[in-house]
Amino acid sequence: MTLQKDPERTETKYLHQYADFTGKRVLEIGCGDGRLTWLYAKSTHDMVGIDLNADDLRVATIERPADAPVSFVRADSVCIPFIKEKFDIAILAWSF
């Protein structure tokens, strides 16, 4: 199958218009296989992606660039396993 998603990179353009990720601590809720994560993660201070789907998280972990300050955690958005005020930006990524 030759599916292509957003080759125009419109989503990337809007995401960066809406938030400056440089040096920020970012939480992505519903990160899935990391498709969205790789659009912004490299400029962050650190980024954590959470999702309930273990298979998607496995893909995201395998595809993680060695120099990306990124980690993935299997967790539910109704019980986020982090202390209060840990992040500067939260992204609800296609997760409703």
Partner: peptide, 14 residues
């Protein structure tokens, strides 16, 4: 999300 965001933190709904 409100709990884990720092003061003046940003939430992006996409």
């Amino acid at each position: 999300i409100h709990r884990v965001l720092a003061p003046d933190g940003i939430m992006i709904d996409l």
